[in-house]
Structure formats: C-alpha cells, structure tokens
Amino acid sequence: MTTNIPGVLLAGGLARRMGGGDKPMRRIGGRTILERVIARLKPQCDGLILNANGDPVRFASFGLPVIADTVENFPGPLAGILAGLDWAAAKKPEVEFILSAAADCPFLPRDLVARLHRARTEQNAQLAVAASDGQSHPVIGLWSVALRDELRHALVVEDIRKIDRWTARYRLATVTWPTEPLDPFFNANTVEDIAEAERLAALDGG
C-alpha cells in the first residue's frame, strides 16, 4: 500500500450501448471487469468502496461497501465522487484524499496512486487527475475531502455536471501514462470494446 488513500470505484453508469446492465459486470478473459479493477487497486489503496445506485445486492459477491449517491437526481461521476468524499468524512475522518476510478477500466496502472500522490504533493495541487495519449481522464484522480462541501454546492446549486468545469477552479496536477503496450485507461463502452479488451488482456498478461 502506497498511502492511506481509500479508493471509490464509480459504477453508476448503465451499459446502454451494450444493451443495458452494469458495465463492470461484463467478463473479459474469464473475469469480470470489476474483478480486474479491484485486483489493480486493492494493493494501492487503503480499502475500496463501490459507488452504485439501485439494489446493492447485485455487487454482494465482491465484498465491498456499496454506497449510493448522496445527492439525488444528479447523475454522473461528480455525484459518485461526492458520495466517496462523504463516506470518507464519515467513516475515515483522518483521511485527506480519496482516489476515484471508473469501474469499467480493466487495465488501470499499478502505480496509479503513487504517481498521482507524488505529482499532487510536488506541485502543491489540490487535485490530481490521470491522462494518456493527450487526453485527460478526470474521472480517475485524487480528490480532497476538504472540498466536499464546495463540490456539493457546485452540483446542487450551480448544476455543474462536467468534471473539468469543477476542477478548473483548483490547482490541478495532471499525470500522463504511456499507451504502449496498451492504454491503461481503456474503458469498455460497447460490445466491440469488449472484444478489443480480450485482445488487450492477452497483452497485459491475462
């Protein structure tokens, strides 16, 4: 474990482009995407929680706490991040930062938390996000628990939904990962993506 940073896995989105259901429950190489995400992040984080709305029983086999959004009718990753910040404030008051990650990214870097934490510290930033191939992945990052009330205000009062609009207000460290042999932030959105993920899993050692 690198730090005392817990991780929140964002599983709120439904796989509409795959015919519905939970994207993280799709299988790649005999394992669910969520199993792969957990395997990548568990050694890096001080515990994991799953942000998902609806009946939490469907995730019971993973043995993680399941938390729903703490603000209603605000779909999207910012609501899930806020739920993770609220959980940390209530359950782990000593924690200053949490990691957020998309639960449909099966090849997350094994040095994700370490590099984000180092960049945020070195740049004296309030937040840190991942990037690859010239593109930021703001759903994958470190978030300050101290900013949770400001995030709640942005969501509920200002109706801000886009992560980039909110993070633009703060000192932000961006950390870029290489995309060879594969992009570690590849996410499975379509049936075609699942087929591509099977190929990438072989490159990634299964």
Rank of each mutant, 00 (worst) to 15 (best):
I49V: 15
G13F: 12
L10A: 12
Q44T: 07
A168E: 11
A102W: 12
R16Y: 10
P138T: 09
P6H: 07
L50G: 07
L9P: 09
C105H: 10
T70N: 04
Q123F: 00
L108V: 07
E198V: 14
T174R: 15
I33C: 01
L147M: 12
T70M: 04
A114Y: 02
D55K: 13
T167A: 04
D159W: 02
K91E: 15
G19E: 09
S132F: 03
F59S: 00
T70L: 01
I38V: 14
K42W: 00
F62I: 05
A188D: 02
E198T: 13
V37T: 13
S144K: 07
L50V: 06
Q123W: 00
T179I: 15
R152I: 01
L108Q: 03
C45E: 03
A15G: 10
P106C: 05
S144W: 00
Q123V: 00
L142I: 10
V145I: 12
L155Y: 08
I49E: 09
E196Q: 10
D204A: 12
M18K: 01
G30C: 02
V129S: 05
L108D: 02
P24E: 03
E150H: 11
N4W: 04
T179N: 11
R120W: 14
E72N: 14
K91A: 14
G30A: 01
D183C: 14
L34A: 05
H153L: 09
T121N: 04
W143L: 05
